[in-house]
Design a protein around this nucleic acid. Structure first.
Length: 584
DNA sequence: ATAGGGTTAG
């Protein structure tokens, strides 16, 4: 039996709440009163705080509401905890009521309340409110910075986040590892990879050491721009710090190595991980898929099953993707069925997209279309885009028009769809169609996404844009490309005329000289590294057939291994051949 | 006896 003091009861209630035992906590509150002891503000706060921290968010909010309705005035402490809970359950209307109470109770300048409000609005998807609360408060401390950056990041306000983060820095607010990790994560999650790499370095030069959370945050940035050297450095750092025990760090390293073209290194990390979860397995299986190593992907999936590990939705996305890449059509079909029958997972949009790709790549366009029509929900742009892509490969104008019509409706701003349809018409010499689509594109004011490639040379990532001459070494790059072109035609490598039409841009006079970015990157790599060095290039679009042929030639002529990761998969060029076996 | 912030896979 607890002591008869309010302190004793409060401690007990806080204890049970913190363990997530809401029922016991409520029970104690009743018993306390039966024993003639009235709870005070601290008793109630302890309840709200404990329930929030133990993940019983709804109970925490209920506690605050009941506290209020029983005549207590929640203070800044209780309000902060309750707002934190509101964010977890994303009940913005409740959050707004608490916010209104905050204004009434006069604790709007309390540092914790401000941070909690920012956090709550961030988690509820209200970017406008985040900025408003921040600008109306006079506080700038480390926690509000962290909540602010995380909230803006979640709502894709990366520019605003960077702007405010820099303001915190310039005002001399003492930021910590969480702040720097947040801004790095923000950049990574919003497509600012090079910015993230930069901030990661800045963080260290400011004397803030990355921790086991920072590493998995920054690794995707290295992976996205294939900064293998940076990735390796982060790996070494993790070894020294003992972070390799951390399943997040391990999984992110697996992913990074796979995306940097080192699927073997990814496997080494994977095998050495002392503790794996389904994410780790998915990263490894997905890595194999990306490299077109379907046999390894399937083998790992089998191993997973024999270990009685439960695959999830993503696992099947990876396995189906691997089958698609390798043309394992029948296996793919079997897994698609197995997923539903043996694992009770009903296929999601992504799974259907995998199957449409798998069937489409195998030339079974009608089957792909039938599957789309059988789907229990409305197909999205990915589905139709996949079908359209396959129609391009197999020259199926009829289904292409069906898919394109849906796409123009679903994603009217996506220039890629117009380009694809135009290319399909062009490959059939249907010039009326080409002109119609190009006019439509022009009327919509759409331009094709600029091709962009990255290559890491001596620890620095270079970005090259198609048709952009701003790289300082452009003259030497052009000279190298001209030399290669001469050699190519001398040795009888003719560019595929089919693929010359691949790119609407190339039909435009202005852009006739624009060289695709992956060629620029490879040329830069060739002239900047010693003979025999492997070149790793990442590209933001899919590699075109012309470049694919050129890469095969260059790998042979220059005696180099070249890996190109496009949006779809890896192409490893060696001795004039590509690992995709031209199946892509 | 009670308070706010960051992470991995397709």
């Amino acid at each position: 039996m607890p002591e008869k003091s309010v302190v004793g009861w409060s401690a007990l209630i806080a204890g049970f709440s913190a363990r997530g035992d809401a029922e016991a906590a409520w029970g104690l509150l009743d018993r306390m009163r039966s024993a003639g002891v009235e709870p005070n503000v601290i008793t109630w706060n302890g309840l709200v705080s404990g329930l929030n921290r133990s993940g019983r968010a709804l109970d925490a909010v209920t506690a605050l509401v009941r506290m209020h309705s029983e005549g207590f005035s929640p203070d800044a402490t209780g309000v902060s905890c309750a707002l934190s809970a509101v964010g977890d359950v994303k009940e913005v209307s409740v959050g707004e009521q608490v916010h209104a109470y905050v204004l009434k109770a006069g604790c709007r300048q309390d540092a914790c309340v401000v941070t909690a409000l920012i956090d709550m609005y961030g988690k509820c998807g209200r970017a406008d409110e985040i900025s408003r609360v921040f600008h109306e408060s006079s506080h700038m401390d480390v926690a509000s910075c962290n909540a602010l950056v995380a909230g803006l990041s979640r709502n894709a306000q990366v520019s605003e986040a960077l702007l405010l983060f820099r303001e915190f820095v310039s005002r001399g607010v003492e930021l910590n590892v969480v702040s720097w990790t947040s801004i790095v994560a923000c950049c990574v999650q919003n497509g600012k990879d090079l910015e993230a790499v930069d901030l990661f370095r800045k963080m260290q030069s400011e004397g803030i050491e990355p921790n086991a959370v920072t590493i998995p945050c920054v690794l995707p940035a290295f992976a996205n721009v294939a900064a293998l050297m940076h990735g390796r450095a982060a790996h070494c750092f993790s070894v020294r710090k003992g972070f390799l025990r951390d399943v997040y760090v391990g999984s992110a390293l697996v992913d990074m190595y796979a995306k940097c073209g080192k699927v073997g290194d990814a496997r080494t990390i994977f095998d050495a991980m002392p503790c794996k979860n389904v994410v780790s397995w998915n990263a490894m299986i997905g890595g194999y898929a990306m490299h077109g190593e379907a046999a390894n992907a399937v083998q790992l999936f089998r191993l997973m099953q024999s270990l009685k590990l439960k695959p999830d939705l993503v696992t099947f996305t990876c396995v189906l993707g691997a089958c698609g890449q390798a043309g394992l059509t029948e296996e793919g079909r079997r897994y698609f069925n197995e997923m539903q029958q043996a694992h009770g997972i009903s296929p999601s949009m992504e799974h259907y997209a995998c199957m449409v790709t798998l069937l489409g790549r195998a030339g079974k366009l009608q089957e792909a279309y039938d599957l789309i029509n059988e789907m229990p929900f409305e197909p999205d742009g990915c589905i139709w885009g996949s079908l359209l892509g396959s129609c391009r490969v197999y020259g199926n104008v009829h289904l292409a028009e069906v898919a394109a019509e849906k796409l123009f409706e679903l994603e009217p701003e996506n220039a890629g769809n117009y380009v694809l349809l135009s290319n399909i018409y062009a490959s059939k010499k249907m010039w009326d169609g080409v002109n119609r689509v190009r006019d439509e594109m022009k009327n919509m004011g759409l331009t094709k996404e600029k091709g962009c490639s990255w290559i890491e040379i001596k620890n620095k990532v270079h970005m090259l844009l198609a048709g952009d001459n701003s790289h300082p070494m452009m003259a030497a790059i052009t000279e190298k490309l001209n030399q290669l072109t001469v050699e190519m035609s001398r040795l009888g490598f003719a560019p595929s005329t089919d693929f010359v039409l691949h790119d609407v841009e190339e039909q435009e006079k202005d852009n006739i000289l624009a060289v695709h970015s992956e060629k620029l990157a490879v040329a830069l790599g060739l002239i900047s590294t010693s003979p025999g060095t492997t070149l790793r290039v990442i590209k933001n679009l899919r590699i075109c057939g012309d470049c694919h042929e050129a890469m095969k030639f260059i790998s042979c002529f220059e005696g180099r291994e070249i890996s190109v990761r496009d949006t779809n998969r890896f192409h490893h060029f060696k001795d004039g051949k590509c690992s995709c076996g031209d199946y892509w």
